[in-house]
């Protein structure tokens, strides 16, 4: 997986609660046996007005110009601002693959669904939990051009005016993100424990 240490990028606000993984990457794309090729179909039913399918490229599609990720202002944004319970529903890791491949490196929300949250750490997408009021402020600011500076070692999100907000992250997960380490290799290094079990 890609390691993650620090990142600066524009924030794009997705103002909906309970965004489920069926929205992030709809089922018709899960037929693929690969780990790549999902970015074009991220939020497919919201980004496009026609139903998509594997192999149909974005330039053949009817684009929903109202959807926030399609607005010219947010092109190239790499930090997704979201609402409560982001990533609920299906366990499909394809959701994380799609977000990363689309160019997003960080998702900031008041809360995440469990399986999605752990899937993030297998791939190098950083999920950050901040308080509701902070998120509300970020949503406000992101209507303009909000660039956020995310620093994992110090666990902080810094706004352009210099205000910083700290976030919590389990030490084991932080370590994994920083090193980009392979989970399996790490567990196999404890082979004797598993064998003894």
């Amino acid at each position: 997986m890609q390691a993650f240490s620090e990142h600066t990028g524009q924030a794009v606000p997705l103002d909906r609660v309970n965004v489920d993984t069926d929205q992030i990457i709809p089922k018709q794309f899960l037929k693929s046996i690969k780990r790549t090729g999902f970015g074009d179909y991220l939020f497919d039913a919201w980004r496009f007005n026609d139903p998509g399918d594997i192999g149909v490229t974005p330039n053949e599609r009817q684009i929903n110009t109202e959807f926030v990720l399609n607005q010219p202002h947010y092109q190239g944004a790499s930090v997704l601002l979201a609402r409560d319970n982001f990533g609920c529903g299906s366990s499909r890791e394809h959701a994380v693959w799609a977000l990363l491949e689309f160019g997003l490196r960080v998702v900031i929300a008041p809360s995440f669904a469990d399986i999605f949250y752990s899937n993030c750490f297998k791939n190098g997408l950083l999920p950050i939990v901040l308080e509701e009021e902070v998120i509300a402020k970020l949503f406000e600011l992101a209507r303009g051009d909000l660039h956020l500076q995310i620093d994992l070692p110090s666990q902080s999100v810094t706004l352009p005016d210099g205000t910083a907000h700290n976030f919590d992250i389990a030490p084991g997960l932080k370590e994994k993100m920083l090193s980009g380490m392979d989970d399996i290799a790490m567990s196999l290094s404890e082979r004797h424990l598993i064998e003894a079990f």
């Binding site: 780990r35 366990s91 499909r92 890791e93 394809h94 994380v96 399986i115 752990s118 899937n119 297998k122 791939n123 389990a170 084991g172 989970d183 399996i184 567990s187 196999l188 598993i194």
Partner: peptide
């Protein structure tokens, strides 16, 4: 429990899940 594909691979290879 439901798990993601990386965890599926992890269980295949180690018979274990890393979890809190």
């Amino acid at each position: 429990q439901g798990i993601g594909t990386s965890e599926v691979e992890h269980v295949m290879a180690t018979q274990c899940l890393v979890q809190n």
